[in-house]
Simulated scan of single mutants.
Amino acid sequence: MKAVLFDQPGGAEVLYYGDAPDPIPAADELLVRVHATALNRADLLQRQGGYNPPPGASPILGLELAGEVVTANGEFAVGDRVMAVVTGGAYAEYATVPVGMALRIPDNLTYEQAAAVPEAFLTAHLNLFTLGRLKAGETALIHAGASGVGTAAIQLARAAGARVITTAGSPEKIARCVELGAYAAINYRTEAFAERIKQLTEGRGVDVILDFVGAPYWNDNLASLAVGGRLMLIGFLGGAAGQLNLGAILPKSLTISGTTLRRTPLDQKIALTRDFAAFGLPRLASGELIPVIDRVFPLKEAAEAHRYMASNANVGKIILSVP
């Protein structure tokens, strides 16, 4: 099969379009003909040598896919359209998917649209609801609201009856976040978000924060949380090291949680997939939830897609179309 490969860590130039062995599905897996996949920050880190796949995972990049079932298994027949999170291998013509991780693609979504769903929406669902315990009537602060996970999180929180505040780095991104359902959007380049949170919540703070930035936001995040608030750390784009003040954690009874979907045990990921299927698939089918796509690149242009993601210009997901 054709796939995007690299032989040594490096910049986007190390990626090339070449031949790889066809994957062989295990007894509890589907073989899927991939029609589209999507970029994630983890792909850039893995390409650079900083985020190796877990044992047993494909070394080929790609953490989500949309495609067509090639080998029947369980409830899925040959030809069924499915989308899924995978531990690797999606930058290719074929990939294997654990049966429990496969989601049926709603009829109203194309393969490119479906490829924008799994990683973003499952990550957001995991951190907002499973770990963050966000409920109707509460307030969530979602950093990087124009990112793939951010655009999914805004919509999921809104659909659950929560109020959403978000941060983003340009007027265009701010406008898109509001369009998707954010109650308020803060331009982090021109405003101190902790001060705005105080104003917007009348000093109470927010109940849940999704943070991709890490150490630079630590103190302002803690200051922005209400009593009993939950901070979900899902990335360290701004760095993981710094001088951190722990003083707010005990008096506010805060919960700090960190997770990566890729390394979550399979049984927990299957349970998450089922939870999202019940909540999210009907809303995707009705159009209440929408996958947000910035650009679509051919698989052969994966290197250019990586450069584009590194520029931080995208609003929503960057898709690779697989011929």
Rank of each mutant, 00 (worst) to 15 (best):
T37K: 02
S253M: 15
A114D: 01
P54M: 05
D267A: 15
R274F: 04
T260D: 13
A26M: 14
V34D: 07
L244C: 07
R262Q: 12
D207T: 09
E301C: 09
S257L: 15
R204E: 14
V14K: 09
A90F: 00
P216W: 06
A157P: 09
G316Q: 05
R307I: 05
Q199I: 12
K198P: 13
G169H: 08
T110H: 07
A159C: 10
Q268K: 15
P9S: 02
G56Q: 10
K317T: 03
L31Q: 06
L61R: 03
H143V: 11
E75Y: 06
G145R: 03
D7I: 04
D207P: 12
L299R: 02
R47Q: 12
A12P: 12
Q243A: 14
E64F: 06
T96Y: 00
L222N: 03
R262V: 10
L320G: 03
E93I: 00
V14P: 00
I290P: 01
R263E: 13
P25D: 07
F121A: 03
M83Y: 01
T151Q: 07
E13T: 01
M232S: 12
I174M: 14
L237E: 04
A152M: 06
G280C: 05
S253I: 13
M309C: 11
L103G: 01
S253L: 13
S224R: 04
P25L: 08
E172N: 11
G242Y: 01
S147M: 06
N187S: 11
L131D: 09
G239I: 04
A92L: 04
L272Q: 12
R176M: 14
N187I: 10
L45H: 08
N108G: 00
V206N: 11
S170T: 13
P55T: 04
G214Y: 04
G205C: 12
S224N: 10
A66W: 02
G229Q: 03
A157H: 13
D220W: 04
A114V: 01
A66H: 04
I174L: 15
L200A: 12
A215E: 05
V292D: 04
T123C: 10
G67A: 09
L128M: 08
L109K: 06
K252Q: 15
G62H: 02
G229S: 03
A277F: 11
F279A: 15
V213S: 04
G10V: 03
V99C: 06
V206I: 12
K135A: 14
G10K: 02
K252N: 15
L237Y: 01
L289E: 10
N52D: 02
L289C: 11
A114Q: 01
A271Q: 15
K317H: 05
L244T: 09
A95L: 03
R189E: 14
A159H: 05
V78H: 11
T166Q: 08
A115H: 03
R104V: 05
I234W: 08
G50I: 00
I186M: 11
V208N: 08
P265W: 12
P251L: 10
Q48E: 14
V322G: 03
A223I: 02
V32L: 11
V34F: 11
R263H: 12
A84H: 01
A215R: 00
A226M: 09
I24A: 07
L233K: 00
I256A: 10
I318D: 08
I318H: 02
I249D: 09
A120H: 02
E138Q: 15
R158A: 12
